[in-house]
Amino acid sequence: MAWLVLILSGMLEAVWASALSASEGFRKWKPTVLFALSMTASMAGLAWAMTSLPTGTAYAVWVGVGATLTVAWAIVTKRERAGVARVLLLVLLVTSIVGLKAVS
């Protein structure tokens, strides 16, 4: 159960990172509210998952999931380009996350 909560919390990290960007320095209220809510839920999930998972592993997976999905969302919405190196590095990041799960 802790792994599921951790993955969902990592997904919420991507939501709050994207909402933070969309808030334009907290000038737009809807993305700002989304940022605050998703960040709170993401941190709470991470904190809960860390009660039964090793801290370093939990944090690395949380950041990895969030970073991967944030970049993927930026590519899908055409805010960033999807170069070969970028895609290969994202695959490496996901592989590393799976590897951390495998050895935990």
Rank of each mutant, 00 (worst) to 15 (best):
G66I: 00
L88D: 12
L93P: 12
L93M: 09
L89C: 15
L34V: 15
R27Y: 14
L8W: 05
V98A: 14
S104H: 07
V103H: 09
A19S: 11
A82I: 05
W62G: 02
A82S: 14
T95Q: 13
L20P: 01
A2I: 04
L89K: 06
V103L: 13
V103I: 13
A72G: 03
A19G: 09
T57V: 14
L88K: 14
W16V: 01
A60V: 07
G10K: 01
W73H: 10
K101D: 12
S23H: 02
M11W: 06
A36D: 02
E13D: 14
L46D: 02
A47R: 05
L6C: 03
V87G: 12
Y59W: 09
S42T: 03
G83N: 07
T55E: 10
F26V: 13
L92C: 11
L20K: 05
E24D: 13
V103R: 11
A85Y: 08
V33A: 08
T95M: 14
Y59K: 05
S18N: 10
L34G: 11
V5W: 00
A49L: 08
V84I: 15
M50P: 10
L92V: 10
W3R: 06
P54V: 01
V98T: 11
G10M: 01
V91M: 11
K30F: 15
T32R: 01
G83M: 06
R79K: 11
